[in-house]
């Protein structure tokens, strides 16, 4: 179900509420989650909402406050935030919605709900150290322009430091899920 329909469903069943999820969001970077007073300034400032009203940061924040984990985690809408920080800039309560949404995405990814595009991009970063693999035609073009070749990434170091974070496990757990 699209996020909006899901989050707008007015009746909240008791068994949907998961306090542990709210606390998890707070711990993952949404420290000010509970001070949101639902003014909607974030949504009114959101360039994505402007073109697709099913993406609504205020509703995402509300759902996180109430612990409605299942309504937001397994949902492609979560990955539409452009991280433009307009909401964070204007939120009168200092909730920093962009960062809260980032925290929710981290939790979603860890629980195996990572969006395919982000998964592919993360894979490329782990393997090549950049968001795209370096292709030969780029170097030819750079040479024509008198630029040095694309500076090479120290891929071994990148791989090594990422061994110590959760990212590889997250990508592996997303495998096989849709």
């Amino acid at each position: 179900m699209p996020l909006a329909a899901e989050t707008r469903r007015r009746v909240i069943r008791l068994e949907e509420i998961n306090d542990a999820f709210s606390r998890e969001v707070i711990k993952a970077g949404g420290e000010k989650l509970y001070v949101c007073f639902q003014c909607g300034t974030c949504t009114a400032s959101c360039p994505i909402f402007k073109f697709d009203e099913s993406y609504n940061p205020r509703l995402i924040i509300r759902s996180a406050v109430l612990g409605l984990m299942d309504r937001i985690l397994n949902n492609d809408m979560l990955w539409l935030c452009a991280a433009c920080y307009s909401c964070t800039e204007r939120c009168p309560r200092g909730v920093r919605p962009a960062e809260v949404i980032r925290a929710i995405r981290n939790i979603a990814a860890e629980k195996g709900y990572i969006h395919e595009f982000f998964k592919t991009q993360a894979d490329t970063i782990i393997n090549y150290g950049r968001i795209w693999e370096e292709e030969e035609f780029v170097n030819e073009m750079r040479e024509d322009m008198g630029l040095p070749p694309v500076p090479s990434v120290n891929r071994e170091e990148v791989k090594k430091i990422l061994e110590y974070t959760k990212v590889k496990k997250i990508l592996a757990s997303g495998e096989g899920e849709d």
Binding site: R102, A109, Q121, I125, V158, I161, K166
Partner: peptide
């Protein structure tokens, strides 16, 4: 001055794992 061996700034991993985006930046 060229920064030899630099990687992606890390921002694009932030949505997946915040700590990974930080270690990439810190490197």
């Amino acid at each position: 001055v060229e920064l030899e061996g630099a990687n992606c700034c890390g921002f694009f991993l932030d949505a997946v794992d915040h700590l990974s985006s930080i270690v990439l930046a810190a490197r």
